[in-house]
Design a protein around this nucleic acid. Structure first.
Lengths: 246, 246
DNA sequence: CTCCAATGGAGAATTTATTCTCGATATATG
DNA sequence: CATATATCGAGAATAAATTCTCCATTGGAG
């Protein structure tokens, strides 16, 4: 009964297709739709990965039929997802690969990485520090840990700072994102420090359910959800193999 | 149009509530529903985590109202999710905590862990080997890597074996699950080896879109999906802060 | 013992996501 | 130049997930 937040802006989204640049470029961008399905956002990186492969193979255009076949998706779903980026395809040809890549990166904010801090330099935290997420929209610019013996160590080029500095560091450098890789018991209090510093989003690798202000976006990344899907399927005679007899 | 696999058995699921053991236990199990929403399965571990906290606090029963408040979920959603386990609650009291825990673990198959092999002992693979997933339904019983210098090393108590042994190992020990933590370029070929060995599910930490038989369940665990949600939100003025004005 | 308030259960209603259908368009072919 | 066909775009139809509504039950208060 409460979630009427988009009711007031979903009435004017169907009447402004292809008004811009009808003539010259043919691959013209449409205004991006205002409301975006989260599952589509999650799928976009998959397209991106594949599109880069196509570039490596020298392709300049790609049809959604082909994309769908490679991903085992429904072609219509691919079209709807790609429509989010505003790139338009051409009949009989497909979408321009290079433009699509750029548009997806733009859409996801992956051309302008945001800064982030990571807290909890255990085995997972260390692994995360080892990745370079700058092509995925995130730069980890600080690492923190509660264990005094870890403070001062340098892991993957970053010196570990004490938790006591966390809030001030975030505040002072205007860090918008925190990565939580601490033990579950510590999660809530560390998350609160992050929020106190002004973080607007948290990537939560712990199994804790965080209690935070509603305007802080928490993305759950702990392993138990996907494990649940896998083990449940294996225990109960596996996913019933969608028959698909069209 | 094709997915009519449940149509023929959804007619007889509403008329047999609380027929078993009406008198003595009161917390009687109902027959589990046949079709299960995946989002619900993903949420079950969250309940489990919270329920264990409640046990630690000495609670014996818990209302879905309270659970929902702690998780910021809708109470009805909590009820529907818990109904999957077959545990029934009592008005004015709530659900029996201990029974719920057991029922969720059973439902997810977490009381009888399945064996799994892990391939790719890089930083992420090493971190995964360090976790003990046996309370989450999985025992990693073998680790493999392509790099000759890693083979023979012992990581978190497991000796790394050469990739060449992978298929035979899976086949011989009837391993139902593979964990993919290799570089994306190697993902497809390693996945095929796993499938050749007889694996029925793959936990895929790579960014590759695997092309495998449809009866092999692939659960995507790579980081790009959740990063996409986070960075897109941060780039475009964040999740519109659900106003919640009831 | 009777009434009240909290609660779970079931199904309906709504919202969200996916898939289907159709028409338009651009390229290739003859 | 005319025609056939692969493809996209949009909207409709379907399916899935979430939320709402109502009712029955239970324990506690008076």
């Amino acid at each position: 009964m409460n979630t009427n937040r988009k009711k007031n802006l979903d009435s004017n989204d169907a009447k402004e297709i292809a008004v811009t640049a009808v003539t010259q470029d043919a691959y013209s961008a449409k205004p991006a739709p205002r409301v975006v399905p989260t599952p589509s956002v999650r799928r976009l990186p998959l397209y991106l990965r594949l599109l880069r492969d196509y570039v490596a193979q020298g392709r300049e255009t790609i049809s959604c039929t082909r994309l769908a076949a490679d991903l085992r998706f429904d072609p219509t779903q691919v079209r709807k997802d790609l429509a989010l980026t505003g790139v338009v395809g051409r009949p009989k040809v497909g979408y321009p690969v290079a433009e699509l890549i750029a548009a997806i990166e733009d859409f996801l904010g992956w051309r302008n990485p945001v800064n982030a801090v990571l807290v909890g330099v255990g085995s997972l935290g260390t692994a995360l520090l080892g990745y370079n997420f700058s092509l995925h929209g995130v730069n980890i610019v600080g690492a923190f840990d509660a264990a005094p013996e870890k403070v001062g160590q340098v892991v993957h080029g970053r010196e570990i700072m004490p938790i006591g500095y966390l809030t001030h560091f975030i505040q002072h450098r205007h860090i918008p994102m925190g990565i939580l890789a601490v033990p579950a018991q510590a999660a809530q209090s560390v998350a609160e420090m992050m929020v106190a510093g002004g973080v607007r989003a948290i990537w939560n690798f712990t199994s804790a359910a965080l209690q935070l202000p509603l305007d802080v976006l928490v993305e759950r990344a702990d392993f138990s959800a996907s494990l649940a899907v896998l083990t449940r399927a294996l225990a109960h005679g596996l996913a019933p193999t969608p028959p698909k007899i069209p």
